[in-house]
Amino acid sequence: MRRFTSGFWLILALLALWEVSARAGWVDSPNWPPLTHVLAALLRDTASGEIPMLVGSTLARMFAGLAGGTVAGVAMGLLFGASPLAARVLGPTVELVRPIPIPAIIPPLVLFLGLDNGMKISIAAITAFFPVLTNTAQGLRAVEADQLAMARTFGVPAWRRLFLVTLPAILPYVLAGLRVALALALVTTVVAEMIAGEQGVGHYLVLMQFAGRAEEMYAAVLVLAALGYALNRGFLWLERRLIGWFFATGRDG
């Protein structure tokens, strides 16, 4: 087993500080419960199946959105690369829309898409779309012209060049965009759930806040922290497996 790092001890120390500060009454509010109470609530609602269900539904929406946003982002990125006209026409719009904080566009999306899965998946998709698009466009510039020229010389048709040369070459860039998108999509999906509808971890968090049940509310926060961490670790593992060759050539550093 790997030895615990100093970072791990810091987390333990902070959690201990949480427990002590609540127990000793340094923070005098029912909205600051001891960590042990939070963990008890977490255990209870996990055993009852409520939290696993909520996490599952939140993740399902997030991944559906990520998939849609990634496909759209790659497609649009390829279009930008293939057609300078498209890049000129659509580029300014993309640059204008990209910096808008996603939570700010939730109210109009509620108007057009309602309060259920459609709206929340769209939120996650829009979140994923922009980082994937910019990274795809950047990746295209890094595709080696020699490889493309060689494929052309050997008479590989254009659509096969796309799948055999271009897409594998830009995969590391797409994945880098996706990793950014993954962290953001969890945030925006949960925010969308907090604002509207009766779904997922986000709704649970707000409901518990309004019910004055701080233990359950922090349990949801802990779940989200663990989820974000696990998603990132899982993604790094996947990345190593998918594009080991990229790291092997030493291009990541």
Binding site: P107, L111, L115, M194, I195, A196, E198, L207
Partner: peptide
Amino acid sequence: TSTTAGGATGLPGVVA
């Protein structure tokens, strides 16, 4: 029922 604890999506949602 669609419960919204914090936000004010109720009346705009009826209009929409």
